[in-house]
Amino acid sequence: MNHLLKPSHCDFFSHLYIEESVKEEALTWKIMQKFSNSKIIFIKHYKDVFNRPNQDFGVQSKSKNLILARREAPFLYEGSYYSDGFEYEHFFYTPSILGCLYDCEYCYLSGMYNSANSVFFVNTGDFFDAVLTYLNKPTLIAISYDTDTLAIESLTSHTKEWIEFAQKHPNLHLEVRTKSANFKSIKNLTCNDNIVLAWTLSPQKIIDLYEHKTPSLEKRLSSIKEAIDAGWRVRVCIDPVIYNEDFNELYPPLIDKLFTTIDAEKLFQLTLGSFRMSSTHLKKIKKLRRSDIAFYPYEVKDNIVSYGKTIEQNILHVMTECATKYIDKERIRTWQLQ
């Protein structure tokens, strides 16, 4: 027995929690094989693990585990007020994966869930069936709301399945939002104008400070370039902007860097928005983790915390001015407190 192990956190997915109901599923087997050294723990229902009281999100973030489960209805939720619905009458998000591999200090997920672990629902077909009922009209589904699907793609092939499903249904529009550098995992799929690949970008300093375990800016940019060159519609989201004393030194140069890397003409859209969150989630995050983002003296209006009108307008003004050097205003979308 080795007593001299240097103390350390467990690796990601050192423990796989598997619902009894999915233990025979092919996808479950595939994932179990991939993590053959992980400890397997069978459970009755994912909520028995994911919703346990008294979990420590901060500590779990360093050793995230995976729960494989079967989702029961609802399979779709209406899009949130905090995000852009792009004027679609039908705008939903799908909770097919809960929790994210990345650990961003400003993410609402840590205020929303008790656990930093991820739940992957292996019954993807049930989600597709639920979507079918809405496809009499153009319908936008955000498939990476409660997660970053591309970050976990090598394990789940989830994005690929959704994209292939969308190829068969012209009224289905998808937004795949990511911070990953993993375009390669879907690069062999046929482009589809109904699908937008949306990358969130931040200056490298903000990535280093707050976006733990995410790929570097350089890697994200090169993934974006690859996607654009392959003909995909790409939206770049510089959202949320994290405001601090270095804002002017960090964010306008980020826009310059973006447009020196990619061809501005080929970018589908640019989204700009400053940090905002429900005050309930922020309160929870304050208890969960030590992050200066959580303790900034925000303005609170209608249960939303934000930097307040003056700072928010300044952020959008500076960034829009910089971005319009490269692209027309019509392709810039902004999120502002109403």
């Binding site: 350390s8 467990c10 423990h15 400890k39 723990i41 459970i43 779990q60």
Partner: peptide, 24 residues
């Protein structure tokens, strides 16, 4: 890592590396 009793169960989190076996 899993403690069962009648119809109930608890799941202590083991988030550190160690060299022992784990079990229900």
């Amino acid at each position: 890592h899993k403690i069962c009793y009648k119809d109930g169960f608890y799941f202590p989190d083991i988030l550190f590396e160690h060299s022992l076996k784990e079990s229900d």
